[in-house]
Design a binder for these strands. Structure first.
Length: 478
DNA sequence: CTAGGGTTAG
């Protein structure tokens, strides 16, 4: 749509002022409540209306308002639309204002800037700003910060600096929050060094009591995060110390940035040390803290520490991601082959996953079954195998054979046979190895008949098992 | 006289 053109036209005829209505003339739905409440009320109303009916409802609202419309009324409406994410409608209403005989005021323009920023069109926002200033209107810091932030978060640093300069010229100096947006923007485009320099500038200026104020913990966090993202977490740690020395209190977000850094750098244990330090300093880790660390530990194969973090998460009432749980469980399985003690941890995590309705991935199933077999828990392994089938996965033949071998090693041959049945019932063809294992076990137990029937079954499927049924006498003599 | 801004994961 041609918002641009309309915008130009309106900004030219801006000078005229509509006659103000006295408050006693205000009637209808919107009366004594203040603007903030009205806007909120409107937002709720828009949200409660199905998208298709929204334009009708708004038209009706504007019409019903009749002669009592004021510029403030329009501002509230447009603001409400922006807040309800009805951005195009907000622009449309802005265009329509003039038809109702109103010229936008400073507040209208500020809302418009905000609207364009939300639409990811900061350049349009900048145009509105230029226009405002041409018309002698002065936006305030907050509006300008919104614009600076929008530019910075899209990497448009150059333009952001232009806006900052403009701010100074109209006597509206950027404050800490504005600078924080720039710090984040610089880091975002990889100019961490510049961000660091700017932070130091802020600190020194702050000492000389300039109005822009001292950097706060947000400033430090932004730069620290920048360092962490480029693999310079140790330097970020130095900044943490500096922030503390300055009397600032790092918060969860600050620590989380560091956790992320250490985990990416392959030093998740440093993260764990920091976690302890954080707690000692009275800062409570949140879900992001834990999952960042857990993810890092698993990524770098620190299974036991990962399990420790997992337990703490459960203890404080957090759930763990399906993917991470699978990964943790696989790690525990592998470790349990060396440390038998871990079998109960495997089981515990396995049960927990099911209680959270997490699905267990096929690879994970395979490892659990194998682990139970190795840990002499063949019955558990079999139950798991059946669960796996019920979950809609069909085990690979290696898994099947591992299971059959596990059961045979404990002499549980009828259960081993039942595995073969499961395979056949699923319409799959068992591998020759399965038959070999079974025949071998029947032979070992001296069941010639059993061995023969398995052998026969294999032949029926066109397979000739390597293992032959043996006469018990022959068997014994071997 | 109205509203509105900034930091964290995979």
């Amino acid at each position: 749509m041609n918002c641009r053109n309309t915008f130009r036209v309106q900004s030219c005829c801006f000078a005229s002022n509509s006659s103000a209505l006295s408050s006693s003339e205000m009637k209808g739905e919107i009366q004594e409540s203040n603007s903030k409440a009205k806007v909120k009320q409107l937002v709720d109303k828009i949200r409660a209306t199905p998208p298709k009916e929204r334009s009708k409802v708004l038209e009706f609202m504007i019409e019903k308002q009749g002669d009592t419309k004021t510029i403030g009324y329009f501002n509230d409406l447009i603001m409400g639309l922006v807040m309800a994410e009805e951005l195009d409608y907000a622009l449309k209403l802005f265009d329509e204002m003039s038809m109702h005989g109103f010229s936008p005021d400073c507040w209208t323009y500020s809302i418009l800037i905000r609207c364009y920023c939300k639409k990811n069109q900061p350049d349009e926002g900048k145009r509105v700003l230029d226009c405002m200033i041409e018309n002698g209107l002065r936006p305030n810091v907050v509006t300008l910060t919104i614009l600076v932030n929008s530019l910075c978060s899209r990497g448009r640093l150059q333009k952001a600096f232009e806006v900052m300069e403009m701010m100074g010229k109209v006597g509206c100096n950027p404050n800490v929050q504005t600078y924080n947006c720039v710090l984040k923007g610089l880091c975002f485009v990889g100019r961490v060094e510049e961000a660091y320099d700017m932070l130091m500038d802020l600190k020194n200026k702050g000492d000389s009591k300039e109005s822009s104020g001292n950097p706060d913990i947000y400033s430090y966090t932004a730069v620290m995060d920048g360092f962490c993202k480029v693999g310079r977490t140790d330097e970020a740690m130095e900044l943490l110390e500096e922030a503390i020395e300055m009397g600032l209190t790092p918060n969860v977000v600050t620590y989380n940035a560091l956790f992320n850094g250490y985990c990416k750098e392959g030093k998740p244990r440093k993260g764990i040390k920091l976690l302890k330090l954080m707690k000692d300093r009275g800062c409570v880790p949140d879900y992001i803290s834990y999952s960042t660390l857990l993810h890092g530990l698993l990524k770098w194969g620190k299974v036991m520490v990962a399990y420790w973090v997992y337990s703490e998460m459960v203890e404080v009432g957090f759930k763990v991601d399906e993917r991470m749980m699978n990964s943790l469980l696989r790690g525990l399985c592998r470790n349990s082959w060396e440390e038998e003690e871990l079998l109960k941890n495997v089981y515990e995590v396995f049960v927990k996953m099911k209680s959270w309705d997490h699905s267990i991935f096929p690879d994970t199933y395979y490892l659990i079954i194998q682990t139970f077999c190795i840990g002499n828990e063949v019955d558990m392994a079999l139950i798991t195998l059946i669960e796996m089938v019920e979950a809609g996965y069909f085990p690979r033949m290696v898994t099947i054979n591992r299971m059959i071998r596990g059961l045979c090693e404990e002499g549980k041959i009828s259960k081993a046979l039942s595995v073969l049945v499961v395979v056949c019932e699923a319409g799959k063809i068992p591998s020759k190895i399965s038959y070999n294992i079974l025949i071998d076990e029947f032979n070992r137990q001296g069941f010639l008949l059993g061995a023969c029937s398995v052998y026969g079954a294999a032949l029926k499927l066109g397979m000739i098992p390597h293992q032959m049924p043996l006469n018990p006498q022959q068997n014994r003599s071997l």
